[in-house]
């Protein structure tokens, strides 16, 4: 039986294992190897160039801009969408009616085709025919060229990013809130926590800790991955003002066909994502679970 069981187990695991090796492990290792080569599509064989790609990145102003832009984008989108998601979840949770409708409305952007909604945003933010600037004109403000001015482009993309991800965070927070035993909030009320803020501090926030940590990390990772809106709306412009990591990786790899350099950028991206996950599992997990 034991031998038979092991055999059956391997038979069941085999398709997944093969796909894992071929489609995930091998290409990931290859990407890591490529990062240390000068591989360009069509030029064979590639040469091992050690850390040259990373040295180039260090001096490449384009990459630096891209890196800084990504950080700025993340620094705006992640905190606002986490706080906003929590705020919406608390507001909806306490609402007497309309909970399903509100949840649906705020969640809608998550399931909407990003590319199409980016186009809708482009129309909204259009400097001359866009309703946003029309509203601003009506109150006497000359609105900027949101997506085509290097001063506002990143901010505009961040606004779209927040709009897109806030509902996602809200749903995660709502799941976290339902997991808090109702009795605890009642106990807090009986214990004299009379202000909503006191109950939030005493019960909701500490018990939401694991959810909150998770939402923070997910939001950071999701916003580091910003690509669609940039690819559709700005292509990194104007003048690299909206160049972000994945878009730089995309253009280096698939427009300029410098796969080695592109792989090196991917590796930076991977290190950031792994770092964020490490923060979650190692440092913070211990402080928010009450075992």
């Amino acid at each position: 039986m034991r031998r038979g069981e092991a055999l059956a187990a391997w038979m069941l695991t085999l398709p997944a294992a093969l796909a894992f090796l071929l489609l995930l492990l091998a290409p990931t290792l290859a990407a890591i190897a490529l990062a240390f080569s000068d591989y360009e599509l069509g030029v064979w064989p590639p040469h091992w160039i050690g850390l040259d790609n990373f040295r180039e990145m260090w001096t490449d102003r384009g990459f630096r801009t891209s890196f800084v832009n990504t950080l700025v984008y993340v620094a705006i989108v992640a905190p606002v969408s986490v706080a906003g998601g929590l705020g919406l979840a608390l507001l909806i949770e306490g609402a007497a009616r309309g909970r399903t409708i509100f949840r649906a409305i705020f969640f809608l952007p998550v399931v909407s085709l990003t590319v199409a909604m980016a186009a809708a945003w482009q129309y909204l933010l259009h400097p001359t025919i866009g309703p946003v600037n029309a509203v601003l004109r009506a109150v006497g403000i000359a609105g900027p060229a949101w997506l085509s001015s290097s001063d506002t482009v990143l901010l505009s993309l961040a606004a779209i990013g927040i709009w897109e991800s806030i509902g996602f965070n809200m749903v995660l927070f709502m799941a976290g809130l339902t997991a808090i035993p109702r009795e605890l909030r009642e106990a807090a009320a009986v214990d004299g926590a009379r202000a909503a803020w006191d109950r939030f501090r005493l019960v909701t926030w500490p018990l939401l800790g694991p959810t909150a940590l998770f939402v923070v990390v997910i939001s950071l990772i999701r916003s580091v991955r910003v690509f669609d809106t940039v690819a559709v709306l700005t292509r990194g412009g104007p003048n690299k003002a909206s160049e972000v990591l994945l878009y730089t990786m995309y253009t280096e790899g698939f427009t300029f066909l410098r796969l080695g350099y592109s792989a090196a950028i991917t590796l930076v991206f991977l290190v950031i994502v792994l770092g964020l996950m490490l923060v979650q599992t190692r440092i913070l997990d211990r402080r928010v679970h009450y075992g």
């Binding site: 290409p27 790899g253 796969l259 792989a263 991206f269």
Partner: peptide
């Protein structure tokens, strides 16, 4: 993330 194996 799925972007990593994309190039190869």
């Amino acid at each position: 993330p799925p972007h990593v194996p994309a190039l190869p």
